Computed example of a mutant assay.
Amino acid sequence: MADLKPKSDISFVEIFLCSAFAACFAEFCTIPLDTAKVRLQLQRKIVPAEGVSLPKYKGLLGTVATVAREEGLASLWKGITAGLHRQFIYGGLRIGLYEPVKTFLTGSDFVGEVPLFHKIIAALLTGALAIVVANPTDLVKVRLQAEGKLPAGVPGRYAGALDAYLTIVRQEGLRALWTGLGPNIARNAIINAAELASYDQVKQTILQIPGFVDNVFTHVLAGLGAGFFAVCIGSPIDVVKSRMMGDSSYKNTLDCFLKTLKNEGFSAFYKGFLPNFGRLGSWNVIMFLTLEQVKKIVTGQAYYD
């Protein structure tokens, strides 16, 4: 591949819509793993008088099974409406803006292979810009996912995604929709850069191995590689983001980071690593494959070199 570069002229609107569709499809397929990840990240150590209690959620499959058993299978798709809102806006913008920003950084007259440094900077910028716009959807998604099983007769905080937006604005103010924006910008900018740069590099490396060609299998391996690097780099920021969005008791990003580190140790920042990798790895594979097929329909040509 090398670059995420269309082989034929295509408008920003077309790129945006293709990217948004691919991101939404991947979101729908993988949100049960994302729900498990959020539950694991929000889970804290409980130390009663008798000793340390066992955690409620254990691992990817254990968390999925617990949520499905206690709350019903549909609970694994909690927050899907807000998740689709997020992916339509964030997914469409981060990929749709990538080429224009990269061209701006290199110059419209640039000829040849775009340096890796420019790819990383472009991805950092587009990830940051996209999540600034999409942060309210991310906040609502996390809040809906974080809500567990309630006692009989006790209603949930929100009746749905739209009610969540309105309730948060009414009770906490408009600015509350951008709670956790700092760690969210850092997370999404870094993960976006990690995904795009590592996808390029992993795919390039695979294609240098005798017998490998640019096909679906190569895309799957490159997508898994992108997901792994993204989770390794972004997991600590992701935990802070989820906790700030799911719990309003933290003063700011630094307060959340320090309290988590003090009370639970550094390992807490990699809570939910397996479901996060399972989710982000599979999300990358589904998204990239879907995006390529959708663009073939729109342009009649493959999206990747």
Rank of each mutant, 00 (worst) to 15 (best):
I10C: 12
V13K: 14
V13H: 13
I15G: 11
I15L: 13
F16A: 06
S19D: 08
F21Y: 11
F21C: 11
E27W: 11
E27S: 04
E27K: 10
F28Y: 13
C29R: 09
P32R: 01
D34E: 15
T35I: 01
V38K: 07
L40K: 06
Q41C: 08
L42W: 05
P48K: 05
A49T: 09
A49C: 11
E50H: 13
G51H: 03
V52D: 03
S53C: 10
Y57Q: 02
Y57T: 08
L60T: 14
L60Q: 07
L61S: 04
G62L: 12
T63R: 00
E71Y: 02
G72M: 08
A74K: 13
S75D: 11
S75K: 15
K78P: 07
G83D: 08
L84C: 13
Q87Y: 13
I89S: 04
G92I: 02
G92D: 02
I95M: 14
I95Y: 01
L97R: 07
Y98G: 05
P100N: 05
T103R: 15
F104T: 04
D109P: 02
V111W: 14
V111K: 14
G112P: 03
G112Q: 01
P115W: 01
F117W: 13
K119G: 14
I121W: 10
A122I: 08
L125K: 01
L129E: 01
A130S: 10
I131G: 02
I131M: 04
N135R: 14
D138S: 13
K141V: 03
K141S: 15
K141F: 12
Q145C: 06
A146E: 00
G148P: 02
G153T: 06
P155A: 15
G160R: 11
L162T: 14
L162V: 15
A164P: 03
A164G: 09
Y165A: 06
V169W: 09
Q171S: 09
E172P: 01
R175Y: 09
R175L: 14
W178V: 14
G180E: 00
G180N: 01
G182Y: 11
P183D: 04
N184A: 12
A189M: 03
I190E: 10
I191Y: 00
N192A: 08
A193V: 00
A193Q: 07
S198A: 13
S198I: 07
S198D: 04
Y199F: 15
D200G: 07
Q201G: 06
V202L: 02
V202Q: 09
L207M: 12
G211W: 11
D214K: 03
F217L: 15
T218G: 03
H219Q: 15
V220T: 15
G227E: 05
F229E: 07
A230I: 01
A230F: 05
S235E: 06
S242Q: 14
M244C: 10
M245F: 00
G246C: 06
D247F: 11
Y250I: 04
D255L: 05
K259N: 12
T260P: 04
K262Q: 14
G265C: 03
A268M: 07
F269W: 02
Y270D: 03
K271L: 05
G272A: 01
P275S: 05
P275Q: 05
G281T: 02
M287A: 06
L289Y: 02
L289N: 13
T290V: 01
T290S: 13
E292H: 14
Q293M: 11
A302N: 10
A302Q: 05
Y303F: 14
Y303C: 01
